[in-house]
């Protein structure tokens, strides 16, 4: 039982980080209808930025976070203006290939700047130790959960109460109506990319603190896609629920089934199995809108 609860708890913590990454994806998708394959690479860059500011420059944690967010803002603006703006109105494949090309370039840049090596800053982030009965919650995961929850709440408030947040929600509904209401859609697109970059970078710093950073960290984006599909691509609430579900399911399944399988590594394919099942039986996900198509 303790084993099971332990798996549940660490799965929950993992799920919150998935949620954070998935939200960045959902925001871009909602506002600009672009599927951002590079979201995982924002996370990887975030991890490396965390390493640079925390270890190389020895900045305090708050300053590192601010600096990383500043870099994320610049990155988001540049990416949107240079690569995604020309893709407005292009077919789905072109946009997706663009984000893939972007992810490849980001990977190349990470190799260029940080050498693509394994970097770790274990023990630099603040920790909170918590023990409930026999359950021990890994300290760095807990801080990750807290930061994730804070960011998610800030985002929800942003979309609910601020002008730009409401403009983004309106753009998600209908671009043309929004334009006639005097909202600049290109600004909204830029804003959505900036937010996605910030969210990805914060997720990267958290994950980097837990398990270190290297290029394959970008694969976490793949898991975020499973989360997004399960929750429904255009639902932020769905991303939260699905993120936690997937994190827990993945951990429990791997914990019980991995010893039975010779090769192991079930945690790595689990999200993909979920993806296929969701796509066959419930393509719009748990909370997504069913798209109605017209000729």
């Amino acid at each position: 039982m303790t084993f099971f609860l332990q798996l549940m708890v660490s799965g929950f913590a993992l799920g919150m980080v998935y949620t954070l990454i998935a939200i960045g994806f959902v925001i871009i998708l909602k506002c600009s209808k672009a599927f951002n394959i590079a979201q995982g690479h924002f996370v990887m860059i975030g991890g490396y930025l965390g390493f640079t500011f925390l270890v190389t420059f020895h900045l305090p944690v708050w300053a590192s976070l601010l600096a990383a967010v500043a870099v994320a803002i610049i990155m988001g603006l540049l990416i949107e203006r240079l690569t995604l703006r020309p893709m407005v109105g292009q077919p789905v494949l072109a946009v997706i290939m663009m984000t893939i090309a972007l992810s490849v370039v980001l990977e190349g840049l990470a190799t260029l700047v940080w050498g693509g090596e394994y970097k770790t800053y274990h023990g630099v982030l603040p920790t909170i130790t918590l023990k409930v009965g026999e359950l021990s919650i890994p300290p760095e995961t807990l801080i990750g959960v807290i930061v994730s929850i804070i960011v998610v709440i800030i985002l929800m408030l942003f979309f609910r109460y601020t002008r730009s947040g409401l403009a983004m929600m309106a753009t998600a509904e209908d671009e043309q109506v929004v334009q006639s209401a005097g909202i600049k859609v290109t600004t909204v697109y830029a804003l959505s990319w900036v937010i996605a970059c910030i969210v990805g970078v914060i997720g990267g710093i958290i994950l980097g603190g837990v398990s270190g950073v290297m290029i394959p960290l970008a694969n976490v984006g793949m898991k975020a896609f499973a989360v997004v599909l399960l929750g429904g691509v255009n639902s932020i609430g769905g991303a939260i629920v699905a993120g936690i579900m997937l994190g827990v399911l993945e951990n429990v399944a791997a914990g019980y089934l991995d010893p039975l399988l010779p090769g192991g590594g079930l945690a790595n394919v689990f999200p993909f199995v979920v993806m296929i099942i969701v796509l066959i039986f419930r393509p719009h996900g748990l909370f997504g809108l069913v798209e109605i198509e017209r000729i």
Partner: peptide, 8 residues
């Protein structure tokens, strides 16, 4: 990094 950046 050259290969990745070039192809991308």
């Amino acid at each position: 990094s050259l290969g990745l950046i070039m192809r991308g």
